[in-house]
Design a protein around this nucleic acid. Structure first.
Lengths: 346, 346
DNA sequence: TTGAAAGCGCTAACAC
DNA sequence: GTGTTAGCGCTTTCAA
């Protein structure tokens, strides 16, 4: 019942605990015959190394912390899986926490990771945690941001150009002949959200006569998107936008439910819709969704790689990797695409 | 740089380390004025408790392990979130791992959790890990299964009646007038999959003239579903099923892509489709999906609650909680529903 | 190649 | 109320 320790193994194998530790960590320096004997003792006692003791002695764990904005968003699950794979290859494990866009939850995980003495933290920040991250750095914990923070360039970042992505979406809508755009997203403290909006604004500014309205939502979820869609439907038609850019695909899917399924507006005829992330459900939604694609797996993998390098060498110059997003056009913004599909349906 | 320890705090506050430990763990037994002094010293040194040392001393961690079958499946993300909430309320944290239906990955996480000396493990098993779990139990680590394992009733379980769910789906399809059913799912070693199939088989057996074919897939993913759909499309129409029951909604969404979007078959006219889980994308898919709903959050919460109780009292009798699934009918299996929606679209 | 011993930071039992 | 101390299981010098 009480777990066997190195001591028990040593006793059974008739060697010292130092030798047991050596077969665990540097088997090449101990005599093959001794290795054999120790291994068999471990097996007999079903010995399992105590990670806490190891970590206490070493001064830090073999884990990385990852804080995502939302566990339900396929963009982050893809990113997470890739991060775990990259970490595993380097012998690290990953502890994942979701802040759900809340500063207090982010702070909570940062505290937990600090107590756990993780080697580094990869995070999609809510607001601006730079001060907190500097404190972790003091303690030897590296940090890499998914999406850089404005106030402190001393932390490496891996991001996608969200301003460019927002511009891409708005330009496409304007080119399709739309002039009353709405941006549905929030909270604006999230950089991804405000950048996508800024990109769209920049594009709108280039086209006189085109307007952009902001419809705020409390979170980037299907539910909030549906609520926003229902509110839009209740407006008199003349006051409705003719195109909507959603801050992510979850919101876009919710808008589809609110506008199309419940609200009975035609997409894209009445309102054209563009989402963001190109999650795997985008192409299979009730009206296939035009979306801005991000390389989620690449972001996760690159982030972990930089994090591991920096945790091993804190003196490294911070790096800022910026990937470019890509527009994927489908039926929700293009009548041609819509008809191609709906003709088949009947 | 080197982290401050209780010793440093004690020195600065001019008390002993025992007192520092007491303000950390039982502040009510130390004089208010002393608490004050110690707290301020902690703050000055930005002291953060070393969880590894605490855990080493205590003999176990304050964490629970959770192993899901798939991180990309919204059913499991819902379950996970609810589990985390329930754990947090009781002062535990949750470490999550995805086995992706692979035994070796499941074994890997079980090993990691054992090294971490977690208090308990909640898992959706691949195959039958009962022997391994008994070994963890020896070490004082409790286990609760999401979906019970046949070979050992001594572990508590929280599951949904998958046999009933499969019967529900098949009965609905047969009642809608279909007679050549196909079940798309796999691997069959996963209990959820084989039970859903068994339920469907039982229902089919009651109706002479109705057949059920099994179309195996390697994993319950959108990609595998799409592949299966494309294979079905390539068959001569007479050899195609007139109804498909997918082992989960991810597969169903993939089938929708393969059959409808790429294959240009009419859903439900040519093939009626039923999925499983009722994820939030089911109602917003290209043809809204009929699905069997499971109480994912309730499962996660109940599982954690039982786990915590059992980790505190290993002598408890194992419990088996069984929830009932519920059929949600949408357009993918019912022409009436489909027309209601598609009429609006034009 | 192996053994002996110190010490990582913490908690809890016991003494004062 | 507070101080002293042993020891959790491990790794890593240093000696032999």
């Amino acid at each position: 019942m009480a777990s066997a320790s190195v001591k028990d193994v040593a006793a059974l194998a008739q060697v010292s605990v130092g030798t047991v530790s050596n077969v665990l960590n540097r088997p090449e320096i101990v005599a093959p015959e001794t290795v054999e004997r120790v291994m068999s003792a471990m097996h007999k006692l079903s010995y399992v190394r105590n990670e806490a003791a190891r970590q206490l002695r070493l001064g830090h764990s073999q884990a990385l912390g990852l804080i995502t904005l939302s566990g339900g968003n396929p963009f982050f699950t893809d990113l997470t899986t890739a991060a775990e794979d990259a970490a595993a290859e380097a012998g690290y494990s990953v502890i994942v926490g979701n802040s759900n866009d809340r500063r207090d939850r982010e702070a909570g995980y940062l505290g937990l990771f600090e107590e756990l003495r993780v080697r580094g933290v990869l995070l999609s920040p809510v607001g601006d945690p730079a001060a907190r991250l500097r404190q972790l750095r003091e303690r030897g914990i590296a940090a890499v941001l998914v999406d850089r923070v404005s106030s402190d360039d001393s932390f490496s970042s891996v991001s996608v150009d969200d301003v460019a992505g927002g511009a891409l979406a708005a330009a496409h809508l304007i080119q399709s002949g739309r002039s009353r755009l709405a941006f549905v997203g929030g909270p604006l403290q999230i950089r991804q959200v405000s950048d996508r909006l800024a990109g769209a604004r920049g594009e709108v500014a280039k086209h006189p006569g085109v307007t952009l309205e902001v419809v705020p939502v409390e979170a980037l979820t299907v539910q909030e998107g549906r609520r926003a869609g229902e509110a839009l439907v209740r407006r008199p038609p003349a006051r409705r936008p003719d195109a909507v850019f959603a801050a992510n695909d979850l919101v876009a899917v919710g808008l589809l439910q609110g506008l199309f399924i419940n609200g009975r507006l035609a997409i894209p005829e009445d309102i054209a819709l563009v989402g963001y992330d190109d999650i795997m459900f985008a192409s299979a939604s009730v009206v296939p969704l035009t979306s801005v694609r991000q390389p989620s797996q690449l972001i996760g993998r690159t982030g972990v790689e930089i994090l591991i390098e920096e945790s091993q060498n804190p003196a490294l110059e911070p790096r800022h990797v910026l990937y470019q997003p890509q527009l994927v056009v489908r039926a929700s913004s293009s009548a041609a695409d819509r008809d191609a599909v709906s003709r088949v349906a009947h």
